[in-house]
């Protein structure tokens, strides 16, 4: 326990770094994937190519990608930016499919009603399609968020500090407790972020929780 006492401050710092290394890619991924997914769903032919390349991106293993990206960007291999870029690519790859599916499965009669009541294309996209796609997008974001928190730890192997550093240090010092601490911290962080996404969903999508009354 004395190790934990002595290292509490450092674990806190690592957790903070880990937090922004996890949140940034998910937010960036969402910002890119939603408009592109919306567009892809309206242009099936080119959109299909786009979605296909997204899914290929997702098959690329994380550690190799973490070493290839700095060579392409010209950044130092130790730069945390590499982790953000790689994880953002994954987030885009996954959320692009989610977003395209979310927009494609909107009830036809509601979209039709939006047209019939005189929404312009933009008004329909922002006021009708985006909020209605919200629940599916949120489910996708939750999946991406959890796996991103877990993937950040791989960055420790190329020297980017985060909670994963507790694994490499614990391994080198043959200290099981440090690894277990890291595991618990990572899982807690994933749960915390998931809770925040759920909360955000309740605030932004209050209608999604209403029960259908007997008609």
């Amino acid at each position: 326990m004395s190790w934990l006492d002595a290292n509490l401050g450092r674990i806190g710092d690592l957790a903070l770094t880990h937090l922004w290394l996890s949140v940034l890619p998910v937010v960036l991924g969402l910002l890119v994937a939603v408009p592109v997914g919306w567009w892809a769903q309206r242009h099936p032919r080119l959109g299909g190519v786009l979605l296909g390349s997204g899914s290929i991106l997702y098959t690329l293993p994380s550690l190799p990608l973490l070493t290839i990206i700095p060579v392409i960007l010209g950044t130092s291999i130790l730069d945390p930016l590499n982790v953000v870029v790689v994880l953002s690519l994954y987030a885009v790859a996954l959320l692009l499919r989610t977003a395209a599916d979310a927009f494609a499965q909107l009830p036809r009669e509601v979209v039709d009603a939006a047209d019939a009541t005189g929404h312009s294309t933009w008004q329909r996209a922002l006021r009708v399609e985006l909020p209605l796609a919200g629940p599916v997008l949120l489910a996708g974001v939750r999946v991406v968020s959890v796996s991103t928190v877990s993937l950040v730890t791989v960055g420790a192997l190329i020297g980017v500090s985060n909670l994963g550093s507790l694994f490499t240090e614990g391994f080198q010092r043959n200290y099981t407790f440090e690894i277990v601490t890291g595991l618990v911290a990572v899982v807690l962080l994933a749960l915390l972020l998931d809770g925040l996404w759920v909360l955000l969903g309740r605030l932004l999508l209050p209608w999604a929780r209403t029960e259908r009354s007997a008609a």
């Binding site: 509601v110 039709d112 019939a116 009541t117 005189g118 929404h119 209608w207």
Partner: peptide
């Protein structure tokens, strides 16, 4: 778009927006 705003439209499955309250749905036009 302007033409549709000047004409009322009622459809088979009501076509209400599920994410808006009833009063906000009516207020859409």
């Amino acid at each position: 778009v302007e033409l549709r705003r000047s004409i009322g439209y009622v459809m088979q499955h009501a076509g209400l927006l599920p994410h808006r309250r009833v009063v906000d749905n009516v207020a859409v036009p």
